[in-house]
C-alpha cells in the first residue's frame, strides 16, 4: 500500500513538473494543479496509512488515525483551490492583454 501511494504521488508530481515547464499557460496551470494534488496526498499520508480507525476519541477504541494531517490537508486544499482559480483568471487576462498564451507574453 505504501509503495503504491508513493508511486502515485511521484507520478502526479512528475507529470506536474513536466507540465509546469511547458511554454503555454494552460499546461502550466494543469501542472500546478497536479503538483498540488501530489502535495495534498503527500500531506495526508504523513499521518501514516490506517484503515477503519476513527480520528476522534471514542470509548472502547485503542487505535486512532492522526487527525492533524487531515486538518492540514483540508487547509491546503482550500488554499490550493483558491490559488488555482486565481491563476486561471490571470492566464485568461494575460491572454487578453498580450494577445497570446505564451508564458512570456510573446511568441518566441
Amino acid at each position: 500500500m505504501e509503495a503504491l501511494i508513493a508511486l502515485v504521488i511521484g507520478l502526479l508530481a512528475g507529470c506536474g513538473i513536466y507540465l509546469l515547464l511547458r511554454a503555454r499557460t494552460f499546461p502550466v496551470v494543469l501542472g500546478i494543479t497536479l503538483l498540488s494534488y501530489a502535495v495534498n496526498l503527500f500531506l495526508f499520508v504523513m499521518g501514516r496509512l490506517s484503515i477503519g480507525v476513527p480520528a476522534i476519541i471514542e470509548p472502547g477504541r485503542s487505535a486512532y488515525a492522526d487527525p492533524l494531517p487531515q486538518a492540514l490537508v483540508l487547509t491546503a486544499i482550500v488554499i490550493g483551490f483558491g490559488m488555482t482559480a486565481f491563476v486561471v483568471v490571470l492566464a485568461l487576462r494575460a491572454r487578453a492583454d498580450l494577445g497570446n498564451d505564451h508564458v512570456d507574453g510573446r511568441e518566441p
Binding site: T25, V28, F86, V87, A94
Partner: peptide, 13 residues
C-alpha cells in the same frame, strides 16, 4: 499581466 503571471506561478511552485 506578463510580470504577474511569472510571479504567481513561481510562488505557487
Amino acid at each position: 499581466s506578463r510580470a504577474g503571471l511569472h510571479y504567481v506561478v513561481i510562488n505557487l511552485v
